[in-house]
C-alpha cells in the first residue's frame, strides 16, 4: 500500500512540476519574445521569423532610442519624479504613522486623525474634481503635480502604523522615562526597529511613482513634461508617424531605418522602461510579503 501511494505521489509530483514550469514560462516568455524582437533585424521581424531568439542580432533599436531626445527627456522627468516623490512619500508616512500608532490614552485625537485619512481611501472625488484642484493650486505642467496630490499613500501609512503599534510599548516607555522627546523617540528608537517595513513602503512607493502614467498625461499639457510611462503611452503612435514620414532624411537617421522598425524600437523602449524595476526586483521579492498584509487581525 505504501508503494502504491508513493507511485501515485510520484506521478502527481511530475505532473505538478510540469504545470508549475509551464506557468512560470507563461509569465516570462512574453518578455523573452519582446527582447528577441528588440534585438532583431527589422526584416526578420516583419517576416514573422522572430519568436524567442533574435534573428539578425543588432543593437540599433536601443541606439536609436537612446540617441533620441524624447525618450531621454521623459526618462529625466521620471528620475526627477522618483527622486522627489519617494522621499516625500516616506517622510509623510513616517510623520503620520508615528502619532497615529499611539494609544488612545497617549494621543486623544488619534481616531479623528485616523478617520480623516481613511475616508480618502473609502471615497474619492473622481477625475474632474481632482483635476480641477490640481489646476487651482497651479501645479499644471509642474513636477509637483505628480508628487503632491498623492504625497501621503494612505495604505502604506497604515502598514507602517500597524507595524509601529505592534512594537512592545516598553520600548517607548523606557525612552520616555529617560526624558526623550517624541522626536527623539521616533528617530532613535522607533525608526531603527521599523526598517523592514520602511524598506517595503519605500520600494512600493518607487514602483508606484515609476509606473504611474495617468497623472502625467492629464496634468502635463506639454509633452516635454511627460514622465517616461506617459511618454510610452503616446509613443507607439509617434514612432509609427516618424517611420512613415521619414522619406527624405539625413544619413544618420537613414542608417537606423535600414535596421529598425516601429516594432523593434517599441520593444526596445518597453524593455528599457522595465530595467529600473528589474534592478530593484530582488529587493522587492525580499520585502513584499511584509507589505502585503495590511491591517491587523485580532488574535
Amino acid at each position: 500500500m505504501n508503494m502504491q501511494t508513493s507511485v501515485s505521489r510520484k506521478i502527481f509530483m511530475a505532473f505538478n512540476c510540469i504545470l508549475l514550469v509551464g506557468t512560470a514560462l507563461i509569465c516570462i516568455l512574453p518578455f523573452i519574445n519582446q527582447l528577441a524582437v528588440s534585438f532583431s533585424h527589422k526584416n526578420a521581424v516583419a517576416a514573422n521569423q522572430v519568436i524567442f531568439w533574435p534573428i539578425g542580432f543588432n543593437l540599433s533599436a536601443y541606439d536609436f532610442i537612446l540617441k533620441g531626445d524624447a525618450f531621454m527627456r521623459a526618462l529625466w522627468v521620471s528620475i526627477q519624479r522618483v527622486a522627489i516623490g519617494v522621499p516625500v512619500n516616506l517622510l509623510l508616512i513616517i510623520l503620520t504613522a508615528y502619532p497615529l500608532s499611539k494609544s488612545k490614552e497617549n494621543f486623544r485625537f488619534r481616531s479623528i486623525y485616523s478617520w480623516f485619512f481613511v475616508v480618502t481611501i473609502l471615497f474619492s472625488a473622481g477625475l474632474i474634481p481632482t483635476y480641477m484642484i490640481v489646476r487651482f493650486t497651479g501645479l499644471i505642467d509642474s513636477i509637483w503635480a505628480l508628487v503632491l496630490p498623492g504625497a501621503l499613500p494612505v495604505f502604506s501609512m497604515l502598514v507602517v502604523m500597524n507595524y509601529m503599534r505592534s512594537l512592545p510599548p516598553e520600548l517607548e516607555e523606557a525612552a520616555y522615562v529617560d526624558g526623550a522627546s517624541h522626536v527623539r523617540t521616533l528617530v532613535y528608537i522607533i525608526l531603527p526597529v521599523s526598517t523592514p517595513t520602511l524598506a517595503t513602503v519605500t520600494l512600493f512607493s518607487f514602483v508606484a511613482h515609476w509606473n504611474s502614467w495617468f497623472d502625467g498625461q492629464i496634468y502635463m499639457n506639454r509633452i516635454q513634461n511627460y514622465p517616461l510611462q506617459s511618454y510610452l503611452q503616446t509613443m507607439v503612435i509617434n514612432v509609427e508617424a516618424f517611420f512613415r514620414n521619414s522619406t527624405n532624411v539625413s544619413a544618420d537617421i537613414a542608417r537606423y531605418i535600414e535596421l529598425v522598425s516601429a516594432r523593434t524600437s517599441a520593444a526596445a523602449q518597453m524593455f528599457l522602461a522595465m530595467i529600473p524595476i528589474l534592478i530593484i526586483y530582488p529587493f522587492l521579492q525580499k520585502y513584499f510579503a511584509t507589505g502585503l498584509v495590511l491591517g491587523s487581525v485580532k488574535g
Binding site: 472625488a125 474634481p129 481632482t130 480641477m132 487651482f136 503632491l148 498623492g150
Partner: peptide
Amino acid sequence: PAVVLVGIYSYGSMAG
C-alpha cells in the same frame, strides 16, 4: 504636512 496636503487634494477636490 499630511493633514494640509490630504486636506487640499482629497477633501478640496470633494468640493468639485
